[in-house]
């Protein structure tokens, strides 16, 4: 073959040295993002559906008169919450589940990249996707007449996004790391739909039966929507309880994922 130009066969000689950790993580993050761009169904779930929900449901009041202000003020936190669920849970779970079933995770784990680079790159890719989602949603909302309410708090929004991302990514990786890829695919999509209904995203929790609403309020989707609604100033009230709920789920789900994730 074409070893004629080489004095030694390719692949022999002084062993190559490993690249710095950051260089490996950057290379793998860019690869993650490039592959994400090629997953049409993932783009649909992460960008098109949250943006579509914001656009469509800002057009009329679905609160049945329980909400004050413009519909877009209630829909922006909901669509942001949905975007986080899509990127951190649905998309991450499905991609990781299939990577695991194809042995991609195992191969990368055994490469010089190793587990820590792998986890860091997946995290970084989710953060980049979420940043693009948030910019997109805020731009759409602004075009629809949204302005931040007087009580808006960027730190609270950031806390909600970070805790929500950790909680949903933890659950996504828990599914991806323990179930078959096909089961992960089905379950992630089902949970996405449930979150749409139970997360205060399209319908306010007040419009659900009381017991369902109470149960939903201690689950991550509704807690995240609540924190974002207060953080964006579209809703008044105390976010403390919801922040604690999110933090609890973040610790539990990320911890479970770290303990239960199987490489193959």
């Amino acid at each position: 073959m074409s070893t004629a130009h080489h004095s030694r066969p390719l692949g022999t000689g002084a062993p190559a040295r490993p690249a710095p950790w950051v260089a490996k993580a950057l290379a793998l993050t860019l690869n993650e993002l490039r592959l994400a761009m090629r997953r049409g169904e993932s783009l649909l779930v992460t960008f098109v559906i949250p943006a579509g929900v914001l656009l469509v449901f800002s057009g009329f009041d679905v609160s049945g008169g329980t909400a004050v202000g413009k519909p877009v003020e209630r829909m922006l936190p909901g669509s942001m919450s949905l975007a986080v669920i899509a990127a951190a849970m649905v998309s991450l779970a499905i991609a990781t589940g299939f990577e695991r079933s194809y042995g991609v995770i195992k191969r990368l784990g055994g490469s010089p990249a190793g587990t820590s680079v792998l986890v860091a790159s997946k995290t970084a890719a989710v953060i980049v996707v979420e940043a693009v989602q948030m910019v997109l949603l805020v731009l759409i909302a602004t075009a629809l007449g949204w302005v931040a309410g007087p009580g808006a708090s960027l730190p609270l929004v950031a806390a909600g996004l970070i805790l929500g991302t950790v909680a949903f990514a933890g659950f996504g990786l828990l599914m991806a790391g323990t179930l078959r890829a096909e089961a992960t695919l089905a379950l992630a999509n089902l949970l996405f739909l449930l979150a749409l209904v139970l997360g205060g995203i399209v319908l306010p929790l007040e419009r659900l039966p009381a017991t369902v609403a109470d149960a939903s309020s201690v689950l991550p989707p509704a807690a995240l929507t609540h924190v974002l609604a207060i953080g964006l100033g579209g809703s008044t009230g105390d976010a403390t309880e919801s922040v604690i709920v999110l933090a609890f789920w973040a610790v539990v789900l990320a911890g479970l994922a770290a303990r239960k994730f199987r490489w193959d």
Binding site: G11, P15, A16, R17, P18, L35, E99, Y102, G103, V104, K106, R107, L108, G110, S111, P112, G114
Partner: peptide
């Protein structure tokens, strides 16, 4: 890991 070259049976490639 950087001193070993692995050729796995399953592809392990996206």
């Amino acid at each position: 890991r950087h001193r070993i070259g692995l050729m796995l049976q399953e592809g392990g490639i996206d």
